[in-house]
Design a binder for these strands. Sequence first.
RNA 1: GGGGGGAUUCCCGAGCGGUCAAAGGGGUCAGACUGUAAAUCUGAUGGCUACGCCUUCACAGGUUCGAAUCCUGUUCCCCCCA
Length: 429
Amino acid sequence: MKFDIFADLQWRGLIHQTTDDANLAAWLGTPRTVYIGFDPTADSLHVGSLLQLMLLRRFQSAGHRPIALVGGATGMIGDPSGKSDERNLLSVDALRANVVGLESQMRRFLDFEDGENGALLVNNFDWMRKFSYLDFLRDVGKNFPVNVMLAKDSVKGRLERSDAGLSYTEFSYMLLQAYDFVYLHEHHGCELQVGGSDQWGNITAGIDLARRMRRVQLYGITSPLLTDSEGKKIGKTEGGTKVWLSDQRTSPYLFYQYWINMPDEDAGKCLRFLTELSREEIEALDQARRDEPQRRASQRRLAEELTRLVHGPAGLAAAEGATQVFFGGEISGLSDRELVEIFPDVPSTTIAQETIRGEGLGILGALVQAGLSKSKGEARRSLQQGGIYVNNRRMTDPEKRLTAADLASETVIVLRSGKKRYALLRVTG
RNA sequence: GGGGGGAUUCCCGAGCGGUCAAAGGGGUCAGACUGUAAAUCUGAUGGCUACGCCUUCACAGGUUCGAAUCCUGUUCCCCCCA
């Protein structure tokens, strides 16, 4: 083994529970096959899945073989764990498209080349669809005592709530995931399943099933959930929008900014859970955070590491470049192309060229058109209070008219309200 | 079925018939301070062709020189008694 994965997970705080505390460390001394399941609820993974992806990656770099299971079949059912309400089911077509999307993202984290411990990507729909209902009941269902299933937290929680309810379909979810584990053991020699702490019930169900069906001993490890200092799941911006791994959904810049803005209290945890930095490095960053928090070395490093991993060096460069412009001084002398690259997330409004000729376009109207202000009155106030910038230069005159002289590039004027809200005004002939 | 109370600007909530675009709080936005943080402080918070004008206080009418405030009806909500 290249390193002691168990000890590594331990100091990072990534071990919540295991099915065999005493022996797992030694057991992981020889190459094993590990699996983690991912829900295809969207065509992209989001930051909430990063922890699991990194876990697989850690196992692979330690010399174990990772299997990423995409739940094409289980996604059709919906996992009741950690969900307070019955889920809406996805259509088969939507699921298929989602699975394709997830596959491409996994490639950034895992090495799928053949070799000793090349990663494997599987979709449980491939084996589940062949199962007939009767066969499934007889071979799998037979091994599940209902009283045990009822005792699982995921089920119990839902039954105790009078308003939530739990359908037979979701109740059966556990059987599917349990069978996945047995299947992966049989076909790929998988012996360990890892997941978030909410997966404990499903993982142990798989282990029980393997024991009953095949008389083999499998193992499970759960990680803590990645929550912030207030106990909320990490992965949403202040505005409440999810941060995705797909650059189509969340640009590299926004992704990078998400980590840059991480509060100090959560930064250490994120470094441990989500990066591969060494213990020495992380502890040095902890120290730096105490000594000179204003430098935010932890956040910078976190953003850098994760952006490079998810969006590649080019994505990182774009994000850093955009950051410099956003938080830098006046914008001028750039080309349209550069501006568009820097501001991929910024909404733009098109105006006719005539409007900035001669007299020019009144700034108040422009702000409303660009969507930065709800009314001219609001625009006027922001302006008078010093919250309006044209090309990053503060404007305070409500009579100001925008003309060709205000173009930051060939055809773009950059408007900004407050510290971070930008909008582009594009002039067309 | 009977009796009582209420409906106010994004939310909560105050509002003598004139001086009410409407107190106060929350939220939100902006500024200062900062670390693109937290906390704190300051300002703003219906619209506009803006020292003025226009539209708001459940809805529709009415009284009055003048109504968020009074009257009538309508709708909805809450409480109490049956």
